[in-house]
Design a protein around this nucleic acid. Structure first.
Lengths: 211, 211, 211, 211
DNA sequence: TATGAATGAGCATTCATTCAT
DNA sequence: CATGAATGAATGCTCATTCAT
C-alpha cells in the first residue's frame, strides 16, 4: 500500500514525516479543488502549504506519487465512512438507498476532497499518455455494487438486469449529482439524492406497486 | 484577425481554407482523444496533421478558438444525426429508448470525437481559470431531456419525478457507457445501450407490468 | 537614390507600382506612428493599407527597404519645405530663427511622419545589430547647421563656439520639442519654438544687449 | 511570486540572490547596450551571463520587472553620483555648469549603462502599447532643472525664460552629447561638455559681458 | 530535513519571408 | 501584379525536477 515499505520494517515513517505528508496532501487537495488539476503545480501546492517546493520533492518521489497518495487517502476516507452504514441495512433495497444517501451526505462535508478526486481521475495520465485512473479505477466500487445487486436478485427483491451496466450507471449518476452540485452550490443535494434513490429503486425493483 | 470575420457572409472562407481548418480540427480530435487535453499541444496537433505549427496559428486565432471549433463541429454532428431519429418516435417511452440507442450507435462510429469532446468539456478553462464548458454546457441537453420527460408525464406514460435529476442522471449514464466502452473496447456497446434503455424505462414509467 | 535603378533606364517603375509603393509607405508611417517601430509588423501595415502582406514583399525587397524608403521620402519632404524658407533669410541670426520656427510649423502638420521618422531612427538596426541610422544619419543636417553657424561667425553676428556641438545641441533640442509635443498634445508648440529660438539666439550671438 | 514581496522588510533577499539579480541586471545592461532593446531577449541576456534562461524567470517576475530594475538601479547610481556635486555649488550659474560637467564625467565611466537606459526609455512599452517611460519619465529631471532655473532667475543671475522649455532643451542636449560620443568614441566628451556648459551659460545669463 | 537556486524542456504565439497560383 | 497559404525560427514564460548546502 505504501510504495517503499516492505523492506523489513526498516523504513518506518517518523511522526514528523507523516505530518508533513498529510499536510502536503491536504494542500494538494485544496489547490486541485480550486484551480483544477492542470494548474495545480507543485509551486502552487507548496505555496498553499507555506513550504518550499523542494519539500514536496523530498517527501514524495514526484508529482505522480503525490497524486496517487491524494487518491488513496481520500478514497479510503470515503469508504471508511460509507461502507459501515451500508452494511447496517438489512435488505438490498435499503442498502441501495443507504448507499446513495450516505455518499451524498459525505459529499456535503468534503466538497474539496471529492472535487480533487474527480479532477485527478479525469486528468491524471501516466508518462505514456494513457489515463492513470479511468473507469478501471472504479472496478472495486463496481464489484461491490454488483454484489449488492446480485444479492437483491437472489432474494427476489430486484428484477433481472445486467449488474455491471446497473453498477456503472449508478456510479455515474452519483458522480454527476456531485458535479452538478459543485457547479450549482445552491442545488439541494439531499433532495437530489432522494430522487436518485427513487430512480434506482424503480429501476431495480422486481415489482412496481400501482402508485 | 481571421476569426472575427464572417459577419454578414462578406468573408467567405475559401475552399482550401475550409479544408485546412477541417483537417486541423480532425487532427486536434485525434490527438486529444489519444493523449488527453492537457498534452494536446499545438505542436503535437501540427505534427499529427503533418504541417507546421504556424499553420494552426494562421487558420485559427489561437488554441482556444481551435478547441471551440472542435466542440462546435462535433456537437452539431451528433445532434444532426440523433435528433431527427428521436423526433420520429411517437411516444415518450419510444423517444427515450431511441435517444439512448441512437446516441450509442453514433458513438460506435465516432469514438475519438466523443472522447475529445469529453476531454475538452472537462478540462478547457478560460484565462481566469474557470471551466469554459462545465456541467452548465450541457444545459441544452438537459433542457431537451426535460421536455421529453414532461411530455411523458403529461401523457401519463411517465410517473412523477424530478425531471432535472432524471436528465442529469440519464446523461451521466450515457456518458459512462461511452467511457466504459472506450476503456474496454470489446465491451458490447449495443447490449449496454439496451440495458440502459431498460433501466430508464423502469425508472420513468408510470406502471410496471408484472414480469 | 533608388536601389535597383541605374541599369540603363530599363527598369522604370510603372505608374501603378509607384502608387502602390507610395500607398504602402504612407501606411507604414501611420502604423509606426501609432504603435511604434517594434510592433509595426508587415501584417499590420498591410492591414492598414487594405492589402495582403505579400504585396509589400512584392514591391519592396524586404522590411528593411520599406523602412529606408519611409525615411528617405519623409526626410526629403521636410527638407523641401523648410530649406527654401531658411534660404530666404538674410542674416545668420534670421536663418537660425527661421530654421527653428519652420521646422516646428512643419511638424504641426505632419505629426505622424515625424513620429515615424524618430521611431525608425532610434530603433532600426542592421542585421548585425548596429543602428541603421544613428547620430551619423543626421550628418547632413549637422553640416548644414555648421555652415549656417560659420557664416554667422564670419560676419561677426555669432560669437566663437564649437559649431559641431552647437549643431548637435540644436538638433537635439528641436527633436525634443517635437517629442514633448507628441507626449503632451496640448503643449503650445509655437510658443515652445519661439522660446527655443530665443535660447539659441542668446547662445550664439556675439553681443547680448542689456535687457 | 518573488517580486511582490518585500513589504515591510520581511523578506530580506539573500546574499546570493542579490548577487544573482545584480549579475543579471549587469548582463541586461550590457546586452541592451550592444544589440538594442528590441533584440535583447532573455535568451541573449542569459547567454551573456552564462546562465540558463530559467534563472532570470526565477529571480525576476518577468522581462518587464528586469527592465524596470535596470532603470531603477542605473538611475539611482547616476543621481547618487551627480546630485551631491551639484548641491555643492553656490550660484545657479555654477550649479548649471556643474550639472553638465558631472553628468558628462559620469557618462565616461558608464557608457553601457547610459546607452541601455536610453534604449529602455525609448522602446519599453506596456502591454497596451503605450510607452512605459516616455518624456513623462523625465519629469523628475525636468522639475529639478526648473527649480535650478527659477532659483537663478530669482537671484537675478538668469534672464527671464520659460523654464520648462529650457529644461527640456538642456536635457536633450545632454542626451545627444552622450549619443554623439557613443557613435564617435574618439569624440572629446569633456570638451563637448565644456562647450555645452558655455552654450547654456549664454542662453540663461541675464547679462552678457562684452567679450 | 529543509531550502533556495538552477535547469532545460515544453508551451502558445508572433513574424518576416517564400511561393504557387 | 496580387494573393492566400505556409514556414520555421524566435520570444517570454511555466514547470517538474535536481542538487549543494
Amino acid at each position: 500500500m505504501r510504495s517503499e515499505v516492505g523492506q523489513g520494517g526498516q523504513h518506518e515513517r517518523s511522526f514528523i514525516e507523516k505530518a508533513r505528508r498529510a499536510q502536503i496532501i491536504e494542500s494538494a487537495v485544496a489547490v486541485i479543488a480550486e484551480v483544477g488539476f492542470a494548474k495545480a503545480s507543485l509551486a502552487r501546492i507548496a505555496q498553499h502549504a507555506g513550504i518550499s517546493k523542494g519539500v514536496i520533492s523530498y517527501h514524495f518521489a514526484g508529482k505522480d506519487e503525490l497524486m496517487e497518495q491524494v487518491v488513496e487517502q481520500t478514497y479510503h476516507a470515503v469508504a471508511d465512512d460509507v461502507v459501515p452504514r451500508i452494511m447496517a441495512a438489512s435488505t438490498a433495497t435499503d442498502m441501495l438507498r443507504t448507499h446513495i444517501l450516505s455518499v451524498a451526505e459525505y459529499m456535503r462535508g468534503h466538497r474539496a476532497h471529492l472535487r480533487a478526486l474527480s479532477e485527478i481521475f479525469v486528468n491524471f495520465r501516466t508518462a505514456d499518455g494513457s489515463p492513470r485512473y479511468g473507469i478501471a479505477a472504479s472496478e472495486e466500487i463496481f464489484k461491490g455494487l454488483e454484489d449488492l445487486f446480485r444479492g437483491g436478485q437472489a432474494k427476489g427483491e430486484f428484477r433481472e438486469f445486467d449488474t455491471r451496466v446497473m453498477a456503472v450507471s449508478l456510479q455515474a449518476s452519483i458522480d454527476s449529482m456531485f458535479a452538478y452540485w459543485v457547479t450549482y452550490p445552491d442545488h439541494d443535494l439531499e433532495a437530489h439524492a432522494r430522487e436518485l434513490a427513487d430512480i434506482f429503486d424503480h429501476a431495480t425493483r422486481a415489482q412496481q406497486p400501482v402508485d
